[in-house]
Design a protein around this nucleic acid. Structure first.
Length: 261
DNA sequence: ATGGCCGGCGGTGCCGGA
């Protein structure tokens, strides 16, 4: 089973590219982030005509997540409140960043982790609070479903080898100590990075800034991940970054990452 | 040198992204 994750930076703007990619890469499951569209306006038909079942959780202009699956998914849930009580979740479900479903006994959780703006900002504190909630959410999930694939745009580069230039990273959003520690705390629940099972090199990125010709110079960050529970990690056959869509005209700033189980 | 470049929104500038 192949599970891909791709922050498309607007599904309506990227519709044709996603369609073309799926025709060339007929993955079993595609997890999308930053769809940036309300559910009634989501362009469902072209993807359904390709043979995918769509599960979407969006909002106007910002955020939004979706899962496309060749086989129907079971137990679809959106947001943290599907598992955690409302006093714990508070207003964190207002931004649409979490959708999950089950296929062949594998629970797939698709995440769009908050960006955080800049270290120390209000949005940064929101990001850290969101990650704390995510840990509770995943802890409860693991108690029920040990076969877990948590994927998406994490907006965190966990190690210096995941950044083209780690100089000054302590004060850079996506690489500060508190962000990395929050993610490490989550992984200690029993999750491991599928990509690093197969590739230990630096210079392997999933996002490149639109500005300053970052892509042709490979000045990127690896911030899109698949984290697998131990049983799935052992089974994983490959995990690859497909840079092809990033080379197109009007690309997303992220490119797909694919794990094969 | 701390910007550049995008997408969405709503109306031709600004916010958010990372």
């Amino acid at each position: 089973m192949k599970i891909a994750t791709w922050n498309v930076n607007s599904i309506r703007t990227r519709q044709e590219q996603v369609l073309a990619w799926l025709q060339t890469n007929p993955v079993d499951v595609l997890c999308l982030q930053e769809t940036k569209v309300n559910d009634p306006q989501f362009p469902r038909l072209p993807f359904e005509n390709l043979g995918y079942h769509l599960y979407i959780c969006g909002q106007k202009a910002y955020n939004g997540v979706a899962i496309f699956s060749r086989q129907p998914l079971e137990d679809i849930t959106v947001g943290f409140a599907a598992i955690l009580d409302e006093n714990t979740v508070q207003s964190f479900d207002e931004q649409k960043r979490v959708i999950a479903g089950t296929i062949d006994g594998v629970r797939i959780i698709n995440l769009y982790v908050p960006n955080g703006a800049s270290v120390g900002s209000e949005k940064y504190l929101y990001k850290l609070g969101w990650l704390k909630l995510l840990k509770e959410y995943l802890q409860k999930t693991l108690e029920k479903t040990p076969n877990l694939c948590v994927c998406g745009d994490f907006n965190i580069a966990l190690e210096d080898r995941d950044i083209h230039d780690p100089k000054g990273r302590e004060n850079h959003i996506m690489a500060s100590d508190a962000e990395r520690q929050a993610l490490k705390d989550i992984l200690e629940l029993g999750l491991a990075d599928a990509f690093r099972k197969f590739n230990t090199e630096s210079g392997q990125f999933s996002w490149w800034d639109y500005r300053a010709a970052s892509f042709p110079r490979n000045k990127g960050w690896r911030i899109d991940h698949h984290y697998l529970s131990s049983s799935l990690y052992d089974q994983a056959k490959s995990c690859t970054i497909d840079k092809t869509p990033r080379k197109l005209e009007k690309p997303s700033d992220h490119t797909p990452v694919i794990v094969e189980l």
